[in-house]
Amino acid sequence: MENPKLRLSGVTLRFGDLTVCDGIDLQVASGELICLIGASGSGKSTLLRCINLLEPIDDGQIWLDDLEISVPGLDPNPVRRRIGIVFQSFNLFPHMTVMDNITLAPRRVLSQQPDETAQAAMALLSRFGLADKAAEYPDRLSGGQQQRVAIVRALAMQPEIMLLDEITSALDPELVGEVLDVVRQLKVQGMTIILATHEMSFAREVADRVCFLDAGKILETAPPDVIFERPSNPRTQQFLARVVRTNG
């Protein structure tokens, strides 16, 4: 791959004796959507947290364009501005309105003018059908709306990559669709996305490539039709057989 947007090489993270990420290699092109699949505890979420520098890695390198961001001692804040992350549990700030949730970081980190930030936030909210929620507090919103606000909050920093960490796992089934629609929109607009998910049919629909993780290793990376139709690794076959049986 020429000029990957993001490049991981031998990324390793240990919690004591447990190796959570075990020599992960991955290259992500600009505008590509990568899905990480695998059982709970396989290291999907942790890998995303490593990319966002929320977990300092023990070994390996992470490159964003041609900047190595895994150098120990590097100031993480400028990097995090360029990489948005959305969590499974939304993590909105409960004491702030939707508008304040979205505008806090642009105002404090990018030093934008308040009215400029508010306008941009309003535009984003409208785009995702949340314009009437700007003055609400998070606990007045449904889970799906909260998660969409969390996505908007990350987008307001104008990131170059979005990391989506099982963003539909905490939602009631009928609310999953509205959040996945947002991801589809982001992809159409050319956002580079890494998505950890249990929604296999969605992964199959939107992913450019799918990575199967098991015990902290990427065992297989392939386009979705290959992974889901003709997985080459026996562990992938096992996992998909199990998931398909339970998910129907």
Binding site: N52, L54, N77, R81, G84, F93, R108, V109, A154
Partner: peptide, 19 residues
């Protein structure tokens, strides 16, 4: 998770604490 969310947006530690 609240401080992780704040830091992931690029807020400094002082700003995370304050806001």
């Amino acid at each position: 998770s609240q401080s992780a969310a704040a830091r992931s947006l690029g807020l400094s530690e002082a700003d995370s604490m304050r806001y």
